[in-house]
């Protein structure tokens, strides 16, 4: 795991999301989710390349089911971008890097 990615938990979630000057992309994932594993290296690349514009974070939904429920995550991987603590963008399902960058264009 790259240090460029912030690992979130139930206890740190609100603090990190609310306390960031940059938008935060949260990857809702789980160990048993194959497509989550597929996009993990892509998110690491984006974290390294775009880290000054957007913070990339991960939340394990098995360990933080309450937060997944709070944001009505019904399918993983789900990526939610929080801007000033408010969810502004939701991407559901795995996709390639080019498509993901395109989806995130407004933040980059």
């Amino acid at each position: 795991m790259s240090e460029a990615i912030t690992i979130l938990s139930t206890t740190t979630f609100d603090e990190v999301i609310g306390g960031s000057d940059n938008p935060v992309l949260v990857d809702f994932w789980a160990e048993w989710c194959g497509p989550c594993k597929m996009i993990a290296p892509i998110l690491e690349e984006i974290a390294v390349e775009q880290g000054e514009k957007i913070k990339i974070a991960k939340l394990n939904v098995d360990e933080a089911a309450d937060i997944a429920r709070r944001f009505e995550v019904m399918s993983i991987p789900t990526l939610i971008v929080f801007d000033n603590g408010v969810p502004t963008k939701r991407i559901v399902g795995a996709k390639g890097k080019a498509a993901l960058i395109e989806d995130l264009e407004e933040y980059l």
Partner: peptide, 11 residues
Amino acid sequence: GEPSSTSDQPG
């Protein structure tokens, strides 16, 4: 292949 959630993904 490219990551996707439709079963023609890598793996």
